[in-house]
């Protein structure tokens, strides 16, 4: 195996990891602020991909053009999920929270199955088929756009959490809900915003992957399982750690598969994940 092949696999892994990273960021945001695991997150991504497809097939919108629409619709869906489901179970036992997002997962998946049938569908984009050459290294334009989009979306979230009043309030609620309440911060409103932002990240990810990935009712699993591994790897609740974890997962997946056998690449991902948890139970960048 030549150095060129290994380098190519690292670049490919980073590109793939960018998408996983955005999914991980969305999952991690809710975990960090509310200590709730959203098992339905992959289904948000799947519904976002369907929305992208139908905007493409029905209105001729390129997935990148429909990205803001996707983000807004998914933001609304996230807020609605919080108001209708999560808010009601927040004061219940942890199992109630777990089961509610699991129930949501089943509902969203099988509603899609019923409505859309299990056909594979794919939107085409201006960036679907291009290839960029950087010396001997090659990147598809679709994957590069997805990677850059993921970096930009995560940076925007960073700015929001760091410098805006609402972002600071969100972090305050995450640190100590009762103290934030005593300071006049209304947690319910902030939780709803957090669910909205998290779902909007799935909307953005759905638009970004659509140029190179087909959608069917099961597609959420393709991204969510590595996404969960990235969250745990980066540190539960650490949004930036989750992003870095996503990149690591991508590289382990592609480079690991290339150096060993591609069939075991997912096993390698979980092996690294277990090894990190064994040595650092809070993840690589956990607090």
């Amino acid at each position: 195996m030549t150095l060129e092949i290994v380098l190519q696999s690292v670049v490919s892994g980073l590109m793939f990891g960018g998408v996983i990273a955005l999914v991980a960021v969305g999952v991690s945001l809710i975990w960090g602020i509310m200590d709730v695991i959203n098992f339905a997150y992959g289904e948000y991504l799947m519904w976002a991909m369907y929305l992208t497809f139908f905007l493409y097939a029905g209105a001729g919108l390129d997935p990148l053009v429909s990205l803001p629409v996707n983000a807004l619709v998914l933001f609304g869906a996230g807020v609605l999920t919080y108001r209708l489901v999560i808010q009601r179970v927040m004061r219940g036992p942890v199992f109630a929270q777990l089961l509610s997002t699991f129930g949501l997962f089943v509902l969203l998946r099988y509603t899609a199955w019923l409505v859309f049938r299990p056909d594979d569908r794919q939107a085409q984009s201006l960036v679907s088929n291009g290839v960029l050459k950087l010396g001997e290294l090659r990147v598809s334009t679709g994957e590069l756009v997805a990677f850059v989009g993921s970096v930009l979306a995560t940076s925007a979230l960073f700015c929001f959490l760091t410098w805006t009043k609402t972002g600071k309030a969100l972090r305050a609620v995450a640190q100590d809900r009762e103290a934030a309440l005593a300071l006049g911060i209304e947690p319910d409103r902030l939780y709803a915003i957090a669910w909205g932002i998290s779902a909007a990240a799935a909307g953005v990810a759905g638009s970004l992957v659509s140029p190179f990935m087909y959608v069917n009712p099961l597609v959420g699993d393709v991204f969510l399982l590595p996404g969960f591994a990235a969250v745990a790897l980066g540190g539960f609740g650490n949004v930036y750690g989750a992003f870095a974890g996503g990149l690591v997962i991508g590289v382990v997946n592609v480079t690991g598969g290339t150096l060993t056998m591609p069939k075991v690449k997912l096993a390698l991902v979980y092996l690294v994940f277990l090894a990190v948890l064994f040595m650092r139970p809070r993840g690589l960048w956990g607090r």
Binding site: S12, L218, D221, T255, G257
Partner: peptide
């Protein structure tokens, strides 16, 4: 011989393996 499972978004390692 490179077997693969169908549900995945990235096939780079499979193709790189065959190419190398």
């Amino acid at each position: 011989r490179v077997p693969y499972s169908r549900e995945q978004a990235n096939m780079d390692s499979e193709i790189l393996k065959l190419k190398s």
